[in-house]
Design a protein around this nucleic acid. Structure first.
Lengths: 335, 335
DNA sequence: TTGTAAGCGTTATCAA
DNA sequence: TTGATAACGCTTACAA
């Protein structure tokens, strides 16, 4: 039964103390060049892998961050995760991934877990987590970055949020400019801040154009059972000439539903997405969407967290990302 | 400066030894019911989070597995990851995610890192990693599961692979049955086993139908700079009436290129995808594709790895997953 | 330039 | 039912 090779095995074989091995490992303190070479050779020979656990215990650094997101298969998140991963990688930090499925109980236990792991920092995307648990987390010494979640009077936390209101406004305004007056909107669950904000923007645009608000054109979808098809049918039945989709994935499904109903996009009905994920360019017709710099958002998140971890003061407490209109072929002027 | 609460703090406050706290924590050994209650209350009060590092050091279990994949934004992987994550979660195991971008040097260092973390097991998807490094990993005591990679005479490892050959054969046969005789194929890089196998299946189908092989219809694409548009143009110029795509994402891009060239899919040209990712149902026209049970593959991978970790003998050393033809609207019979 | 001793926070083992 | 002691593998601080 072969035990794992430890620093002691290396020390013994090299005929030096384990402290010297440690010095070689960490390039710290002076080590005789001959000794260093020999130690390195022996490390290689024995295929010695220093234990991060043991190291963490004394350095109080794990070089690991926790990442809590609802669903890794959602391209919105996976793009951001890629940005985060690529960025932290350069600093030898690794990512512990927790998928939460937006279940609050799971989020709470994942946060606990992350703390058990003594991660150096945590990135949290969780629209539903209650304020009490959120504040508790932030009050701990652990550096925290929030994605799409703001919290008042907490200057120990950094948030990056999408300006959903302006996004909703811009998208609606664009359709209004195209002549649409009956615009349906499919937003996310009502508890999500982004849904609320998106609706405010939408309503503001309508009112700016003196278009009376038709509440029946506002529909909410649930993350789990989305019922896009039913909702699209409803909106069509209610004479919507354009639809603001919850996100690009939803937009693609809406277009599909329209096609199945014998409607052509954008000839018969316009559809506009949100997020600007890679797929938005691949569906047919190419989506008009509110584009977000997802990868770059991941970079910003990671960079800020790393600064916090290193104890550097960050002046930025909040980054607001503005979605930009990217015109594709899923919208057109009404005649 | 508030240190982290340790088991000793709890012990002191509860007026018992730390061993008793440990017993309560692990439900191991007898503890007086009154004591247990008190200890639990104090744990709650102090918000004590046991350190996994310290625990791991003595138990030699980290409850963590490493997951090495090329790219998390690729839906093929993110679906599988979701299956893995959901499955291991039930056993209180967590996932350390390493994105490798298919760079061999990074793969090697990630494997090292995973070992530094003393993970309990590792899931590896790395078509390019050299056999020497791979065998070295497998020879260690660490349980390993390979995705889309077989290795000979190694009965310490479990592989799950897609039957790319049959997949290529079935797809090509389907197109041949539809009357196509000039079938282009876009496969992945030549070093990837899956590309080679896919081509073998494709060629076999052609020969079964006595269709002469036209090498100019076989194109390889690179993971990084895919040049789908150029390749599609080439195939069209060479009079392909159908194209077998590398995967669904590629298929969507091919369709887009065709559209830009003024060709209609499937009227003018048929396109068939591979993998059956969710997007295949959302592009227009809906993709005909070789469908794979990605989520379930993730489950299988996770379950097998957990068995290996628990020291249970697994009779299965290899799972071959058969892609099934799922007819959509991107293909049609030639007249 | 190198070595010795102590300690990180937990569990295992044995004794009480 | 509980406690004392050693051990896990490493780094830090100090001494040689």
């Amino acid at each position: 039964m072969d035990r794992k090779i430890t620093i002691n095995d290396v020390a013994e074989k090299a005929g030096v103390s384990r402290q010297t091995i440690s010095r070689v490992l960490n390039n710290k303190g002076d080590v005789n060049e001959t000794t260093r070479k020999r130690v390195l050779r022996i490390i290689e020979e024995l295929d010695f892998q220093p234990s991060m656990q043991a190291r963490s215990m004394v350095t109080r650094k794990t070089n690991t961050i926790a990442l809590l997101i609802p669903d890794i298969t959602n391209p919105f998140f996976s793009e951001i995760v890629r940005g985060i991963d690529r960025t932290v990688r350069a600093t030898n930090i690794n990512v512990l991934l927790f998928s939460t499925d937006e279940e609050v109980s799971r989020e709470v236990s994942c946060i606990q877990l992350a703390q058990n792991y003594n991660v150096d920092g945590i990135i949290l995307c969780s629209p539903r987590l209650d304020e009490i648990n959120l504040r508790k987390l932030i009050s701990s010494k652990l550096p925290v970055v929030l994605l799409n979640r703001e919290i008042a009077e907490m200057n120990k936390v950094y948030s990056i949020i999408v300006d959903a209101q302006t996004g909703g406004y811009t998208a609606a305004k664009y359709l209004l400019d195209l002549g649409h007056r009956s615009i349906g909107i499919l937003v996310g669950p009502a508890y999500a801040d982004s849904s609320v904000k998106r609706l405010i923007g939408y309503k503001k645009a309508l009112s700016d154009y003196a278009v009376p608000l038709d509440e029946s054109l506002i529909l909410h979808i649930d993350h789990q059972h989305d019922k896009i098809h039913e909702n699209t049918q409803l909106l069509v039945k209610r004479n919507a000439t354009a639809i603001l989709a919850y996100n690009d994935m939803t937009a693609a499904k809406i277009i599909q539903s329209c096609t199945e109903m014998g409607l052509e996009v954008p000839k018969d009905i316009s559809v506009i997405g949100f997020d600007g994920i890679p797929i938005s360019r691949l569906v047919n017709p190419r989506l008009t969407t509110m584009d977000l710099p997802l990868y770059e958002m991941g970079e910003m998140i990671a960079n800020t967290l790393m600064k916090m971890i290193n104890g550097e003061e960050t002046h930025t407490k909040l980054t607001v990302v503005l979605p930009l209109l990217k015109v594709g072929q899923s919208t057109r002027a009404i005649t």
